[in-house]
Amino acid sequence: MFEARLTASATFKKILDAIKDLLNEASFDCSESGIQLQAMDNSHVSLVSLMLRSDGFDKYRCDRNLTMGMNLANMAKIFKCANNEDTVTIKAQDDADIVTFMFEAKKQEKISDYEMKLMNLDQEHLGIPETDFSCVIRMPSGEFARICKDLAQFGESIMISCTKEGVKFSTGGDIGTANVKIAQTNNFEKEEESVTIEMQEPVSLTFACQYLNSFTKATPLASQVQLSMSDNVPLVVEYQIPDLGHLRFYLAPKIEE
């Protein structure tokens, strides 16, 4: 028996919004420690890694490890039927080929349930080594989204250069070039507005705009985003989901031809 109950179904809506452009379907691996998802996009250039800890749920029970393959567009359709304030309960039997989503209004005046067929997905898992990154940047997630959107107008790729002084986002194309520099802040009062840089050595890497812009669909999940970079290693874009876990995106850097 698997059962997970979360007071805020809005969180699930936001997670689905953040990943459904990159992934058509994905396997949710459920265990005692929580729900995990790891999947690459169709072109195998980026990877989504989601972790929702069992202790972040209001109720969590997982008697046996369970892998639930789900079509994310269909899952999003179901979550559209829930109000943001509804409590969601996800249920499945041990060997089930269906999953049930139950939505309960706060005062129990409305209870709805939706059953969805599970899929058998043959997904490739990648081993992601622990990395000591040369640069770890924390900045407002909205600012990162804004920069990616703005620069996408001018080029297909964004170069992210990180030094002790700050981070520079640059692109160029037929129109010309665009550069945005973000300095480290000393704003200790408003943590969500701060920019912090932990740097071992400066790094400069180039990434496809299209993917960075997809990742920023996760912006409503967290006020801050963390970018981790090292030379010749995929970028990690991480959104912390308060009290529940994290959503990470990995993106292979472009290389000189």
């Binding site: 081993g127 995929p234 472009k254 290389i255």
Partner: peptide, 14 residues
């Protein structure tokens, strides 16, 4: 602007 490798150039399948 640059070649786009896949993630398999960096991570191994498990």
């Amino acid at each position: 602007s640059g070649k786009q490798p896949t993630l398999m150039s960096f991570f191994k399948k498990t």
